[in-house]
Write a protein that binds this DNA or RNA. Structure first.
Length: 113
DNA sequence: GTTGTGACATTAT
DNA sequence: CATAATGCCACAA
């Protein structure tokens, strides 16, 4: 049955719901994992539509590079940042520390803390 | 059916 | 690193 736009929503929600705590995925990654490599935009729409699903860890979905897709100071921005922190992630401004392999900071942080 | 918009990504300058 | 342009997807007017 084609024309199942709902299937895409489900696929996206499914992927988002599968994101483990302490980890985040970019819209593009979610879209790709859902089976739609270039449906990154649709992911945002799907999440906005799923905002009614509190069980959906939408806060683990961020823009590429771990950057929060909301304007700094926005309600959702603070909400997402708060939830990410609650998940035990380090958030620097609008950026989320995504276990950067090869990144000096990760080693330093690992050592410092 | 065309145009505009959005919780985006990628490439080029 | 910032900005502009283009591509992608689906929906609303």
């Amino acid at each position: 049955m084609a024309h199942d736009t709902n299937a895409r929503l489900v696929a996206i929600w499914r992927v988002v719901a599968a994101i483990p705590v302490g980890s985040v995925m970019s819209y593009g990654d979610v879209a790709r994992r859902a089976g739609y490599p270039n449906a990154a935009r649709y992911v945002g729409y799907a999440l906005s539509k799923a905002s009614q699903a509190p069980e959906l860890p939408w806060h683990r979905v961020v823009a590429v590079g771990g950057r929060i897709a909301f304007p700094v100071g926005s309600k959702l921005y603070r909400e997402q940042r708060r939830r990410l922190l609650a998940d035990g992630m380090r958030v620097c401004g609008a950026k989320v520390r995504i276990t950067p392999v090869g990144d000096m900071d990760s080693l330093l942080w690992s050592q410092a803390d």
